[in-house]
Amino acid sequence: MRRHERMNALLELLGERGRLDVAEAATSLEVSVATMRRDMDALAEQQLLKRTRGGAVLAPVAYDLPIRYKRGHHASKHAVAETAAAMVEEGDVVGLSGGTTTTEIARSLATRPEFAEAGPQARLTIVTNSLNIANELAVRPQIRIVLTGGVAHSRSFELTGPYSEMVLRQLTLDIAFIGVNGIDAQWGGTVHDEAEASTNRLMAERAARAVVVADSSKLGLRCFARVGGADVFGTLVTDAAMDEASRQKFTDQGLRVVTAAPPMAGG
């Protein structure tokens, strides 16, 4: 892994966990403790994280970094996104929350042959509260973009609050894909912010099919605010690293579990 990719991975890891010590980060990213200290020091100089005794936390302005800081390619997220995107049919109204995995879903949908061809009418409608997803897809005339209103969060580029929810309550969706920061069988999907949890839950509730998307690094984690479990979602899409015991726990709670095929070697 190149240095800039490693730093992006470190920032994303901090965004998910909130705090990391040097040894924990070095183990997760498979580098030496000395290398991790240098990476943390470099990011601290850029004010993207704050060094603590023995570790780091994200700087207040970068608690959950906007997507432009997350350039590293993560094969598991891409595999999850491809599997989720395959559930969409031409003409569907698709809800997408913010997040790295849902951004990958948006990119996958935009490049699907049946959706990529320009025509007199939009082949797909995407409803999103994510500024970066709307920005990426707005240049594609074959995809109709509906961006909810709301208050923009600088850390995640998501719009939340009463304006966003007012728009969502007027819409019906065929399918919604909701990203989370953590998910376990008992608690369901969770995120760091209660406003994002509320908006994302409503988006899921407005959909005929609600799908929570999370790569295996999120499994077993609980964050501050609950989005929902089988009371909101019908399906969990994750990657092939999920073990059978974990799958059974989610299935017992009433969720259909779909695992993405592992990425091809060298892909």
Rank of each mutant, 00 (worst) to 15 (best):
R2T: 10
H4I: 11
M7E: 03
L11A: 01
E12K: 14
L14V: 10
L14F: 12
E16P: 04
G18C: 01
R19E: 04
R19P: 05
R19C: 06
D21P: 08
A23N: 07
A23L: 04
A26Q: 03
S32T: 14
S32D: 00
V33C: 12
R38T: 08
M40Q: 10
L43C: 09
A44F: 04
A44W: 03
Q46V: 04
Q47T: 08
L48I: 06
T52L: 03
R53A: 11
G54S: 06
G55V: 02
A56S: 06
V57A: 08
A59D: 02
P60N: 01
V61Q: 06
D64M: 07
L65N: 03
P66M: 07
K70L: 14
R71K: 13
R71Q: 08
H73P: 02
K77H: 08
H78C: 05
H78A: 12
A79E: 00
V80C: 06
V80G: 12
A81P: 07
A85Q: 01
A85P: 07
A85R: 04
E90C: 13
E90R: 15
G98P: 11
G98K: 03
I105P: 13
L109G: 06
L109A: 11
T111W: 10
A116L: 04
E117R: 15
I126R: 02
I126T: 04
I126A: 05
N132S: 11
I133T: 14
I133H: 05
I133A: 10
A134I: 05
N135P: 08
N135C: 09
L137Y: 05
P141A: 07
R144Q: 09
I145R: 08
I145E: 00
A152G: 12
S154W: 03
E158L: 13
E158K: 10
G161V: 09
G161E: 00
E165F: 15
Q170L: 09
T172D: 02
L173A: 11
D174H: 11
D174Q: 09
D174S: 14
I175A: 10
A176C: 07
A176V: 01
F177M: 04
F177G: 09
V180H: 05
N181C: 10
N181F: 02
G182M: 03
G182V: 06
G182E: 00
I183W: 06
D184R: 15
D184H: 12
A185F: 10
Q186S: 13
W187I: 13
G188K: 13
V191C: 14
T199I: 11
T199D: 02
N200E: 01
M203R: 04
M203F: 06
A204L: 09
E205Q: 13
A207G: 08
A210E: 00
A210C: 07
A210L: 05
V211K: 11
V212I: 12
D215W: 13
D215Q: 10
D215M: 12
S217T: 12
L219A: 11
L221I: 05
L221F: 10
A225D: 02
A225K: 13
R226H: 09
V227F: 05
V232Y: 09
F233Q: 04
T235P: 14
L236Y: 04
L236E: 03
A240N: 12
E244A: 15
S246Q: 08
K249I: 00
F250V: 02
T251E: 10
Q253S: 15
G254K: 14
R256A: 11
R256C: 09
R256V: 02
V258G: 08
T259R: 15
P262M: 06
G266T: 00
G266V: 01
G266M: 00
